[in-house]
């Protein structure tokens, strides 16, 4: 799967694209971990390019959120498609991961 990345003054914005399912979730996990740096002041995962995520993908997001939570690095996701937002709400992920409507909101408010 494709994954774009942009760093700006300690803000690491990671933008994956495509579908995250049981067949590529291991690859998704590796790519996300490789995109992190110890110098990141905060991490934003822009999910705008993802229209499908199953529990295999949620597992990866949980591991990422727990990893960043362990180092007290602010972390948020943004731009969830309606289908992904539904999965987030059902699984209660919107209670454990900060969700912003847009990338601009995430950049402005995540602290």
């Amino acid at each position: 799967m494709e994954l774009a990345q942009e760093r700006d003054a300690g803000t690491n914005v990671i933008s994956p694209a495509g579908r995250v399912d049981g067949s590529n979730s291991a690859e998704f996990h590796e790519s996300l971990m490789a995109a992190l740096s110890g110098d990141d002041n905060r991490v934003i995962l822009d999910m705008g390019g993802i229209d499908y995520i199953s529990s295999a993908g949620l597992r990866v997001l949980l591991l990422l959120a727990q990893h960043l939570g362990g180092s007290a690095t602010p972390f948020a996701v943004c731009s969830l498609a309606a289908s992904v937002d539904e999965v987030f709400r059902i699984s209660g992920f919107n209670q454990i991961i900060t969700v912003f409507g847009t990338l601009d909101e995430a950049k402005a408010q995540l602290a």
Binding site: L58, L62, Q66, G69, V87, I90, S91, G92, I96, I97
Partner: peptide, 18 residues
């Protein structure tokens, strides 16, 4: 339990819950 805090959450059972 979808109300547990972040560090206590595990993924088990989430697929069938969905």
């Amino acid at each position: 339990d979808t109300d547990l805090p972040l560090q206590e959450r595990s993924i088990g059972g989430l697929g069938l819950h969905l």
